[in-house]
Simulated scan of single mutants.
Amino acid sequence: MELYFMGTNAGVPSLQRNVTSLALRMLEERRSFWLFDCGEGTQHQVLRSPLKLSKLEKIFITHLHGDHLFGLPGLLSSRSYQGGDTPLVLYGPKGLEQYVRMSLGISESHINYELIVKEHSGGLIFEDETFRVESALLEHRIDSYGYRVTELDKPGRLDFEALTKLGVKPGPLYGKLKRGESIETGSGTVHAKDVLGVPKKGRIITILGDTRPCSAAIQLAKDADLLVHEATFLHELAETAYNYHHSTAVQAAQTASAAHAKELVLTHFSSRYKDDEQLGLLLDEARVIFPNTRLAKEHELVVVARDEQL
Rank of each mutant, 00 (worst) to 15 (best):
Y4G: 08
M6S: 12
A10H: 15
L22C: 06
L27M: 00
E28Y: 08
E28L: 02
E29Y: 03
R31M: 06
C38P: 13
T42F: 08
T42V: 09
T42I: 03
V46T: 07
L47F: 10
S49I: 12
S49Q: 13
L51R: 11
K58V: 06
I61L: 12
G66R: 14
G66H: 15
L69A: 08
L72I: 13
P73L: 13
G74W: 04
G83H: 09
T86M: 15
Y91L: 00
E97C: 03
Y99M: 08
V100H: 03
S103K: 06
L104H: 13
G105K: 03
I111F: 13
I111K: 03
V117P: 07
S121M: 02
S121E: 15
G123V: 02
G123K: 09
F126K: 02
E127W: 04
T130V: 10
R132G: 04
R132N: 01
L138C: 08
R141H: 13
Y147Q: 01
R148F: 06
R148C: 14
T150E: 04
L152A: 03
K154H: 04
F160R: 06
V168P: 03
G180M: 10
E181F: 15
I183F: 10
T185V: 10
K193S: 03
D194Q: 10
L196E: 01
P199T: 12
K201F: 07
G202K: 02
T206I: 04
L208K: 07
R212D: 04
V228M: 03
T232L: 10
T232H: 04
L234T: 02
L237I: 09
E239L: 09
E239P: 04
T240K: 12
Y244T: 02
H246K: 15
T248W: 08
V250Q: 06
Q254P: 05
S257M: 13
K262G: 00
K262M: 00
L264F: 05
F269S: 02
F269P: 01
D275I: 12
E277W: 14
Q278G: 02
L281W: 15
L282Y: 10
E285Q: 11
H299N: 09
L301S: 13
L301N: 10
V304R: 08
R306S: 05
L310W: 14
